[in-house]
Design a protein around this nucleic acid. Structure first.
Lengths: 181, 181
DNA sequence: CCCATTGGTCTGGTGAATGAACCTTCATCT
DNA sequence: AGATGAAGGTTCATTCACCAGACCAATGGG
């Protein structure tokens, strides 16, 4: 990572992880990727991040093996950014940190709720389905929806508009999805 | 948080969490607090962080309710920084992110291993004791030790020296512990 | 009195984040 | 053909946070 963004001295796996996803915006980009955001302009509009920073972060995440570039059209060549296997394994930490934020850093609780797609039951604190048991539910089997206890989103970007209704994680969203309006 | 360190637009609990623990060094400070580091100078030496930044981060974490100041002597008044209940609940996300780093961002695997104090069994990926089952093991019942598959630490600060042997999480470390040499 | 310990604050320099403007490729409209 | 617009960037000046190191304050010990 660039100067000032690493933790050389730290002999600790957490420091290594933060060198990959600990920079400003990085984890929010990964979160959006779980939401199904794939295209540069969708990340841009949904995150409100400077273009140059988004370019830099996406390249870094690709270099780190968290995201990969996947062409979705040629002429002109365009590609989306998708989670790799390594990236998908960030679901656990990301979900838990989100839940922590909902409990302790948010007025009015979480903005979104996450349920097991197979049975519709909301996940517990560590991402396990209380009805089905077993290990943590993989992100491919999770459906997110807005928390009805909160007022709806006031935002007008394509991603925010798509997320007002239930949405399976990793399913392509916004520009990449059907352009119904 | 200071200008440029928040994510106002994001209607997302993860963004709220990152406004609290997403700045550079913040999560490493919390990690050290789990290790039992309590004193300013111990954080300073173990993290290799600029003093002004450490002051700023500790104050922010206290203001956010993640840490609290606890006097340990008067004349001159001195206090340590301890995890609050809110801070203790960061154990889950922190442990999972650390495990992810050990698997995907570290050559040679994790630097430390974490076991259930009651039975000595290493925790699984989500922080549950495979032998005892049930929910995630609380940090008060976790013992950390260096990973024997790795060369020992080359560092000479008091915290690093203390962590070469098994150590229960949250037990005061370094200057605050017995000054045995 | 001088010095060490602890926990800071202050200052100047540097690199990163920011917002806005600009660029390139190609498809489509007229 | 030329204008227009979408997608995905790059370049630039400014601002801000991070950094290292010097300095400061309260107290206790030799």
């Amino acid at each position: 990572m660039a100067l000032g963004t690493d933790y050389e001295l730290q002999e600790c796996a957490l420091a290594r992880a933060l060198e990959v996803v600990g920079e400003r915006w990085s984890l929010l980009i990964v979160r959006d990727a779980f939401y199904g955001v794939q295209r540069f302009n969708d990340f841009l509009a949904h995150l409100g991040i400077p273009r140059a920073v988004l370019t830099s972060r996406l390249n870094a995440l690709v270099a780190a093996g968290v995201l990969r570039k996947e062409p979705y059209q040629r002429a002109p060549l365009r590609h989306g950014y998708l989670l790799t296997g390594t990236g998908l394994e960030l679901w656990g930490p990301l979900y838990q940190l989100s839940r922590w934020g909902g409990r302790h850093a948010t007025d009015g609780g979480s903005y979104h709720l996450f349920a097991h797609a197979d049975c519709g039951t909301d996940l517990d604190l560590v991402g396990v389905c209380p009805a089905c048991g077993g290990g943590p539910v993989p992100p491919t089997a999770v459906v997110m929806r807005p928390n009805p206890a909160r007022a709806g989103s006031h935002r007008e970007d394509p991603v925010s508009r798509a997320l007002v209704r239930p949405h399976p994680l990793l399913e392509p969203i916004a520009s990449a999805a059907s352009p119904t309006g």
